[in-house]
Computed example of a mutant assay.
Amino acid sequence: MSAALIFDVAPLGSLVAYSDGTAKPPARFTRKLAAWERRNGAGRLVRKEPARERPTYSSPPCFTLHEGDFGEGGIILVTIMRTYGIDSDLTFRVVERPKVGQVRVLQHVGENAELIHLAQNREAAELWLAKAGYSRARLEEVTADEIGADDVEGRAAA
């Protein structure tokens, strides 16, 4: 599906895979493999931003995928996030939607909400929030209404 469709129908917390449709090169071609990995992967949908119009620039609607954290001993050193505009030429698909009853921990970033954690239930979310120490985060339960949009334009969305 297109990036615009992901922006419109995928709820925050969904696991989204993306691809450019090319075959994975052999491991011995390290540069080609690195380039391929930048255009083929998966991540958790953590932010959606509407179009922005400013006097000096404009940007299309976009979404951000959290691809992973790297660190050692419980300390995160690097977080990999990739942002895609709805005009991206990549192909996207929803691999997994958040389940009903899971709880999102959201934080406001400007005018938008960003997913900082997806917990299995409210108790786990409150425990994580107490340990993490985010002062202005809010909890939002995943409902059946937002997960029910499985068929979009005659295609399965997940």
Rank of each mutant, 00 (worst) to 15 (best):
S2L: 11
A3H: 05
A4V: 06
L5T: 15
D8W: 01
V9P: 02
P11A: 11
P11R: 10
L12K: 02
L12S: 00
L12Q: 00
L12A: 00
S14Y: 04
A17Y: 02
A17S: 15
Y18C: 09
Y18T: 08
S19D: 15
S19Q: 03
G21F: 05
G21H: 03
T22H: 08
A27S: 14
A27Y: 09
R28H: 13
R28D: 14
T30Q: 10
R31V: 12
R31F: 03
L33Y: 06
A35S: 14
E37F: 02
R39F: 07
N40V: 01
G41V: 02
G41N: 02
G43W: 01
V46H: 02
K48M: 14
E49K: 10
P50S: 13
P50H: 10
P50N: 14
A51Q: 07
A51K: 10
E53P: 00
E53F: 04
R54S: 10
P55N: 13
S59Y: 07
S59K: 15
P60N: 07
P61A: 15
F63G: 06
F63P: 00
T64V: 08
T64K: 02
T64L: 03
H66P: 02
G68Y: 12
F70Q: 13
G71K: 13
E72Y: 09
E72R: 07
G73W: 10
G73Y: 12
G73I: 06
I75P: 01
I75S: 11
V78H: 11
V78P: 00
T79P: 04
M81N: 15
T83A: 12
I86E: 14
S88K: 07
L90N: 07
L90P: 11
T91G: 10
F92H: 04
V95A: 06
V95T: 09
V95S: 08
E96K: 15
R97K: 12
P98Y: 05
P98L: 06
K99L: 14
V100A: 13
V100I: 15
V103E: 09
R104Q: 06
R104H: 05
V105P: 05
H108T: 11
V109E: 14
E111L: 10
N112L: 05
A113G: 04
L115F: 03
L115A: 05
I116A: 01
H117C: 04
H117K: 02
H117N: 04
L118S: 07
Q120T: 12
N121H: 13
R122H: 12
A124I: 03
L127C: 07
W128F: 09
W128L: 09
L129T: 01
L129M: 11
K131G: 02
A132T: 10
A132Q: 13
G133M: 09
A137V: 01
A137I: 02
R138S: 06
R138I: 04
R138A: 01
L139K: 07
E140A: 14
E141Y: 06
E141K: 12
V142A: 08
V142F: 07
V142H: 09
T143K: 10
A144Y: 03
E146Q: 13
G148M: 08
G148T: 08
A149N: 13
D150N: 15
D150V: 14
D150E: 15
D150Y: 11
D151I: 14
V152R: 13
V152N: 11
R155N: 12
R155T: 04
A156P: 10
A156N: 15
